[in-house]
Design a binder for these strands. Structure first.
Lengths: 345, 345
DNA sequence: CTGAAAGCGCTTACAG
DNA sequence: CTGAAAGCGCTTACAG
């Protein structure tokens, strides 16, 4: 048994040229059936796998995708990104791509890392996450000329995300809070509060918009029933107390963290009020909180598909908005039974 | 400006040979100061970065480490692995290594992935996590001959982990629960319960051991004050009720998930009992639960150091056990003030 | 359908 | 201190 089989050593052993072996692996249709079978058996027996570096050097394709691991300041909400990464790794592998994971200090550091990776030809594309208002990264990646896809739409005061000159996938948060709110209206609620972080264009604003639409459509009061505060359980609890004092009977929250606090406020007052969070995090599941499930697996699959298409040279920009699904677990909500656990990893 | 600078194009431009440029990058001490400076300036100006694949092919080193993203069945406890991965990515990058992330169905799938990566020469080493009783992976990696380090000691009924023929880093869970329990004894508690998943060698058993040592040493009762149940908030709550009924005034839990449930049981009874969890997860922070902080950053740094040393040919096996740190936040604990938040990411 | 040739971009001994 | 040569292991046109 040689040190490690190569195309050369295998070919010599079989009495064929090494490009025949290469063809067996890369273009089997060009090889005669008999040869094909013979070579394949030998490849199998030797446990031969082409050396990645050699292939990369020759094809100028790394079959690797860059992914920045975001600092999870908040491990509760970081859950969505974690789940997204899992799904992405899964689908990437099936497509023959690997994930080059890295962490960065800040966005400049992040961009420098992409630049270095591109210069070293060690990645074919980038998966961006956690886009925010006036995010400089898409433009810089566009300038770099590296294919990329964003999980998260470009947030902007002026521009329409559907006009963006790059691919993105996002979850329609507004649709989620709207569905939740309409459901609460159907259940008979007339004063439905909303708790979220400050309202500049972004995730919180998007979710706020859904609540507002549903409440407006139903002719219910809105103004004094929205409270804006930083994302945190304590803040959510305080905000909830304010809203409950204003007569709210149900609270729609922009995150499970806020909902966690809101639920405590409700229990401070002896219960009987409904709280709904967002993201269906592990805490929500453990505490049987109502929440909204993001279709993370579908988002990851879609993002990967868009990116691979880009890498293959497609120039057209695509934008995909996916609908989330409310999950009601709280028995307080009349007539509702808890839905089966969604074991999204 | 050429398509993309290579050693060749840079050398031609500067009127030197390409190995001189290569020397400037890899062995600057062999180059005359004047040449060095001139070449460096050109490299900088051109934004030249060596193509990774070519270097890999030549040096037979990928400078990449494999890491399996574990399915996080439980996003609360999965937090430690997430934090570990962050730190690992950080330190790896500083050491010039990248992380090849992948997900796998099960351990067979995981092993096959390592084998393929080794065959394709696309990784230099493996970082193993989530070791368990009779884990088959270390032996298989040993047989593969690929350098690896394990975050988690080898759990076994018979063998001493310090005799293992491979490198591992782990957190001394027993030391954590022992410290916590002794502290509770100092605070005057005489009936201190313990809640954990079933006691086969592993993390739960290790943490149990610390509690038992402290309780035994203090001459307190143990037998009826330990309850074993699956890891979950509901289970923790139920177990806590059992122990509280047996007169426990403090509850040491093997996880924050169990502690979350136990805290609810305590509040069911009107409070006044102390609960301590483990891992200092985001939930514990949000809910001001007492917990134990794992030194994740140090574990990641140590693991990487051991692995790189292995990759460099060191044959000796090293085993490192790191002490965790209790964090008391609950004001119920007399005389204690909340410690400053540990913002481990 | 199969094989001889060229080359991807680097680094590593080895002469000079 | 600097340069000419060889080669890492592949794949891709191109002949035959």
């Amino acid at each position: 048994m040689p040190d490690r089989p190569t195309l050369e050593s295998l070919a010599a052993e079989l009495g064929v040229s090494r490009q025949t072996v290469s063809n067996v692996i890369n273009r089997p249709e060009r090889v005669a059936p008999a040869t094909l079978e013979r070579v394949r058996a030998a490849v199998e027996a030797a446990g031969y796998v082409p050396t990645l570096a050699a292939r990369q050097l020759r094809t100028a394709r790394s079959h690797a995708l860059a992914f920045r691991l975001m600092p999870t300041f908040d491990g509760i909400n970081g859950h969505i990104l974690d789940a997204f990464l899992h799904e992405l790794a899964d689908h990437a592998r099936r497509a023959g791509y690997s994930l080059a994971l890295f962490s960065a200090e800040d966005e400049d550091d992040e961009m420098e890392t992409y630049e270095r990776m591109v210069a070293a030809r060690s990645i074919d594309g980038v998966v961006l996450t956690s886009t925010h208002l006036d995010d400089p990264r898409p433009d810089r990646l566009l300038a770099l000329g590296i294919p990329f896809v964003s999980f998260g739409r470009p947030w902007s005061v002026t521009a329409d995300p559907f006009d963006a000159p790059f691919d993105w996938v996002d979850v329609d948060g507004a649709a989620g809070t709207e569905a939740v709110t309409r459901r609460l209206v159907e259940e008979g609620h007339r004063r439905i509060g909303y708790i979220s972080w400050p309202l500049e264009p972004g995730v919180g604003c998007d979710r706020w918009d859904g609540w507002r639409r549903a409440v407006d459509d139903s002719g219910l009061a809105t103004e004094e029933l929205a409270v804006y505060c930083p994302d945190g359980a304590d803040q959510g609890r305080q905000a909830a107390h304010t809203l409950l004092a204003r007569g709210a009977t149900a609270l729609v929250c922009a995150s499970d963290t806020l909902a966690l606090g809101a639920a405590r406020a409700v229990s401070d007052l002896g219960g009987g009020r409904v709280v709904v969070g967002f993201d269906n995090t592990p805490v929500a599941r453990e505490l049987s909180l109502n929440s909204v499930v993001q279709p993370v697996a579908e988002a990851a699959r879609t993002a990967l598909g868009l990116l691979l298409r880009r890498i293959d040279g497609d120039q057209e920009s695509r934008h995909v908005l996916l609908p989330p699904t409310p999950v009601f677990r709280d028995r307080t909500l009349s007539g509702l039974t808890a839905e089966p656990e969604h074991h999204q990893r």
